[in-house]
Amino acid sequence: MKSLFKAFGYIAILLSSVFVSTLSFADTQTAPVTETETLFTQELDQATLLDQATMAVLVKENTRCIRCHQKERLLKQIKPITSVGKHKSEANLDNCTACHGNKGDHPIDNQVIISHVPTDYMTIETQNEQCMDCHKADELAEKEWTHDVHEKDVNCSSCHSLHQEIDPIINAEKSFRVKLCVDCHRDPQAKKKLIMKEGN
């Protein structure tokens, strides 16, 4: 009986010292967790690569886009397009059609191209869907929640400038982003201009 209690006592003391030693964790610092950012996760798999013929057509179209648009289009005051930044694609020869749709009868028929500005012949939602083909809604929302509330009413191009090497809004400073929100939301007239542009 005596030795039983002795053993009991020793075990209890051992357990208690284990617990006291866990107090040493009281001052451990948490390691910062780094998140890897992936926005565009769609992998190009073999099935989605277009066949030779379709590719040939696209390359030809894209060449024709660049031929006209590398200079300033004085009639519509369209600035020369010198870069497509991150969307550059050598396979599609700079990839105009991926974002703006197939050339079709443009510029004779001006309503076939997706212009990514508010128009009265193509809804903003339809225009944005071209971007959403690759950039999924879930991923956009995870990266920046404001995508959810703007996807249907505001052109992606209102915040994103793709015809330059670096899109300024990517990883922008918080004060830059806040200014962007405020500038548009403060002035009800400005907001209207962005959503309902007269003509083209």
Partner: peptide, 13 residues
């Protein structure tokens, strides 16, 4: 503090 209601792209905040 932001609360999301619904699923993207139809979510509201």
């Amino acid at each position: 503090i932001r609360t999301k209601v619904g699923d993207s792209p139809d979510a509201e905040y």
